[in-house]
Amino acid sequence: MNKATGDIRHHRVDADASNTVEGGGTTVYGNKFLSAAVRLANTPHSRVVLGIESIRHKSAKRDPIRDDEGTAFIKLARCILTHAPGLRAITYDNALRGVHRAPLIADGLVVFTTQHGGLAPEPLNRYEYDDACRHDLYVAEGRVRERRIAVDGVAHCTPLAVEELECRKSKRVRYYHRVTIQCPMEIHTEHIRVDETEEDRQIDPSIGRQRFNRNEHLRQVPLTPTPAAA
């Protein structure tokens, strides 16, 4: 009601709307949606929307029906995949974490997202070849690296080149990075799994979490490392 004139006006109210924060940190009022689309490379106005979904932007207690963004994206991607079985790759922003990427990769998709910052290097495996050499491989910044100790005792993680992303299909899809380890003795080639394994999913009783969140630390398509300064 207008207190000056006494006029009464009725407004339409969306009970689902509320304040939500966009990716850049801007607070907006309304509902939150995600969409999936395809478009031709280097062709303006060629976007075709394949699906759209409303997602939860309140607490689960206040909005128990809708899913969080990552879960909703998995469902939408899988729905699209049933109608477009030729789909091979999908990309999204940093809302996807390892727990969201893992099931999509298991469905046979190459999932490209940028790497989250703040993740400490994780030990992957130690490879020993006869008694001549051994190499400690770690994962850091989305890719496999070899950890070496310099003469001053400082550890350095050197990125290994990904020669190929190999896809193997049987009962379930598996992805491997073929990497080359440059060794003074000889050049070694290894195949590193980049999809979640059964061993990864086992719960480590010492920490109460799965042993290795592989898809959080490893990217199927890692970013090209920055060349070292001369």
Rank of each mutant, 00 (worst) to 15 (best):
K3I: 09
T5Y: 15
I8G: 14
I8A: 07
H11A: 07
D14T: 09
D16R: 03
A17S: 05
S18D: 07
G25Q: 00
G30A: 13
F33I: 12
S35E: 05
S35A: 15
A37N: 08
R39C: 13
L40G: 06
L40D: 10
R47V: 10
R47N: 09
V48P: 14
V48Q: 01
V49I: 05
A60D: 10
K61W: 13
R62P: 06
P64H: 05
R66P: 13
T82I: 09
P85I: 12
I90R: 06
I90S: 11
T91Q: 08
Y92G: 13
N94H: 03
N94V: 05
A102E: 03
P103T: 09
I105S: 02
G108H: 04
G108F: 04
Q115M: 12
Q115P: 08
Q115A: 12
G118M: 02
G118D: 11
L124S: 11
R126Q: 15
Y127A: 10
Y129W: 10
Y129M: 13
R134T: 14
L137W: 02
L137V: 04
G142H: 00
I149M: 07
I149Y: 12
G153V: 15
V154D: 11
V154F: 07
C157L: 03
L160E: 03
L160V: 09
E163S: 13
E163Q: 12
E164R: 10
R168I: 08
Y176H: 03
R178A: 12
V179H: 01
T180K: 01
P184G: 03
P184I: 01
M185G: 07
E186R: 00
I187N: 06
E190P: 06
V194G: 09
D195W: 07
E196W: 10
T197I: 06
T197S: 15
E198H: 14
E198Y: 05
I203N: 15
P205T: 03
G208W: 07
R211P: 04
R214H: 00
R214L: 03
E216M: 08
E216G: 04
H217Q: 05
L218M: 00
L218C: 01
L218K: 00
V221S: 07
